[in-house]
Design a binder for these strands. Sequence first.
DNA 1: CGCCGTTATATCTAGCCATGCATAACGAAA
DNA 2: TTTCGTTATGCATGGCTAGATATAACGGCG
Lengths: 118, 118
Amino acid sequence: MAGQIKPRLRILLGADIAMGPGKADLLDAVARTGSISAAAREMDMSYRRAWLLVDTMNRAFRSPLVETAKGGAGGGGAEVTAFGQRVLARYRAMELKAAASVAAEMREFTRLLAERPG
Amino acid sequence: MAGQIKPRLRILLGADIAMGPGKADLLDAVARTGSISAAAREMDMSYRRAWLLVDTMNRAFRSPLVETAKGGAGGGGAEVTAFGQRVLARYRAMELKAAASVAAEMREFTRLLAERPG
DNA sequence: CGCCGTTATATCTAGCCATGCATAACGAAA
DNA sequence: TTTCGTTATGCATGGCTAGATATAACGGCG
């Protein structure tokens, strides 16, 4: 199956990777769930890791992508800022554009891979 | 300095990454030096690591990208096969094409990053 | 025939990173 | 005021990976 072979394209920004596929997915999950911990559970990663990723993003950009609140109803939560939404949207657009631009070559390339990964 | 911030684009093929920026560079070094160990030295990595990477590539593709010889003059050596050269050339082309397609957005993006990485 | 540098591979060790655990602060709601 | 789930952060253990080390085979060449 060539289905399992997933040619992936990663756009990495900044020295310690301000944005990448993983962080983009996390941002999505935070936006959807409204909290870092829920996003972490959903993505099956430790809260610590999720928080660290969010922190890296917040510090890497000019302005925070995620704003958090302690206490209150539900114990608090997190939301993706308008700026964060713009960043995410732009990143997704870049991903699509880049992927589309090399789609043909990508298919060609997978043809050169061995049948069985093992 | 925005110079240090290097937005990089990685094209990853296959489950355990049949080809990526690092492997492409290694392939280049092997072609240039004529041996895995010399390439490893040049890239400042352990011979083991270099050999492992080459082995992964060779097994991931339909046909080996690198052919090796034991013993003989100079103790042996390694050379990038014609197939390997084609794969490398295609990969580089893809890199360039993808990078060019999002160059404008990439610049735009770096403008959103914080001045200081720390 | 010994020398040499390389390929190829096994094994051991050290260091690092992630995970998990613990804890404190927080604030709305019951 | 107690409860609750979350943010935020420190700490320690463990697992995994990278590197170092060792060794054998190889074969042209002096």
